[in-house]
Amino acid sequence: MNTAVITFPGSNCDRDMLVAIRDVFGSEPHQVWHRETVLPEKLDFIALPGGFSYGDYLRAGAMAANSPIMREILREAERGVPVLGVCNGFQVLAEARLLPGALMRNANQRFVCRDAALRVENADTRFTAGFSKGETITIPVAHHDGNYFADEATLDRLEGDGRVVFRYLHATNGSRRDIAGIVNDGGNVLGMMPHPERAIDAAHGGTDGRRLFASVMESLAATA
């Protein structure tokens, strides 16, 4: 499997993402700096990690969304390559308009850092095939800007099309309709605030995140 983790200036979960993918996929991901203008060839999976790209200046993810490598990522996403954006990665994907909506400051203004119970709303995506619909899973959250906003028409459309993949069981950050993760209309781009790469090993306190990466790997193996 040919995978890549993108690092922006201020990414700080890129190594965790790297370890998670290496561990689950059994091969070493490419590490790609955001200034690169080409991606390694024939990528099967691309991950945008968490962190604080550009110090969250202007808006979280806004500057990174215009990094040179993003042009390539848009192209790969259009080709159907699975792209995962976690936390700041989700913010970058939303700012790049690969996903609808925006991530705003948490409604209570506080940074939230804890295990979050999530309901799997759609288990038919290539990221969630290893879960069951309606299942409750536990994945840690750690963010200041995870308050998902989209207008009502967009929210209705996302829900109607099954594009809300994860929902918080308990109010976490003020997100509209408790949305924790969504996919694009092709189903190959997932943005989520919780950190699956922090739930890979039993020593992390849970391994539900591992199942997400395993789902991606199995979907790739099935289509190979």
Partner: peptide
């Protein structure tokens, strides 16, 4: 449109 504002919000 491209950077300074996010016209979603």
């Amino acid at each position: 449109e491209k950077l300074l504002a996010n016209t979603v919000i």
